[in-house]
Simulated assay, not measured.
Amino acid sequence: MRYVKVDWDLELRGFRTDARDYLAVLPELKDALPSGAMAFASDAGHYDYASERCVKDLELAEISLPTTTAGRSGTASLDFRPNQWKHSAGLRIEYADVSHFSVDYESSIDWTAAITVLLDEVLPHEGGIVHEIELTDATITVHCADLTATWAEIQGT
């Protein structure tokens, strides 16, 4: 991620997260981000750790990818279960016109029962946006035209 900081702190034995640099630049991105991405990134609770609409601590539940033919892009979605101590609803993110989707796994952290969101960042990218989500042991990167984020009950929660 370019502005959002997520680092393992050996002394703390946990992750340090900081979105202040991203929040400072976000107003400058207003005209460069599509409407869905801007609405999601600038939601008042998005980076407020005490908010039910903060992405931190959501648990990855499902990844749905389209089957596409060469040269065509499709729609993908991510479902996140709520953290039982923090969220009253889960989050579904749908990505329109996906041109790149990757999950890069890091070394497994065996003390977590679920793969949870540490923080994310949405930035302008050729043809739309790049959405990067840092998880406890992986990073999801999506390049797409725009996204739609919906807080709702997620199946299996």
Rank of each mutant, 00 (worst) to 15 (best):
D97R: 12
E52R: 12
L26S: 09
D31A: 15
L78S: 00
T67L: 12
R16K: 15
F80S: 03
A61S: 11
D79N: 12
S99T: 13
A89L: 15
M38W: 15
S88R: 14
V55N: 10
V117Y: 06
A61I: 03
K5E: 15
S108D: 14
D43E: 12
F80K: 04
E28N: 13
S64K: 15
Y95N: 02
L118Q: 14
K86M: 03
K30M: 12
D104W: 03
V117K: 07
W111S: 11
T69P: 01
R16Q: 12
V98P: 02
D120W: 04
T17F: 04
I109P: 06
I63D: 02
L60N: 03
W8Q: 04
L33C: 04
S64Y: 00
S108R: 12
F80I: 04
H46L: 06
S51R: 01
V122F: 08
G36S: 02
S99A: 10
L58G: 04
Y95T: 02
L12V: 11
T68E: 03
A50S: 14
R16D: 07
L118Y: 03
E59P: 01
I63M: 07
Y3Q: 09
A114E: 14
G36C: 02
S64W: 02
K86R: 08
K56M: 11
E62T: 09
S88I: 11
S77M: 09
T75C: 05
D9G: 02
K30A: 15
S88L: 10
R2Q: 14
L118T: 04
S107M: 12
P82A: 06
L60Q: 07
P82H: 06
T112I: 13
T116C: 11
C54S: 05
G14H: 10
K86V: 00
L119K: 09
A41F: 07
Y49N: 13
S99V: 12
L12F: 14
L26T: 08
G74A: 03
D79T: 11
D9T: 00
N83C: 10
D48Y: 02
F40Q: 06
D21C: 03
K30D: 11
H100V: 08
D21T: 05
F15E: 06
L12Q: 13
Y49P: 09
C54T: 04
L58I: 05
V25C: 04
L65P: 01
F40K: 04
E106A: 14
V55F: 08
I93L: 01
W111R: 15
I63A: 01
T68M: 05
Y105N: 12
A114D: 15
S88H: 12
W85M: 12
A19S: 15
A96M: 07
Y3M: 11
K86F: 03
D104Y: 06
A96C: 04
P27A: 05
N83E: 14
T17H: 07
P66H: 06
S88N: 14
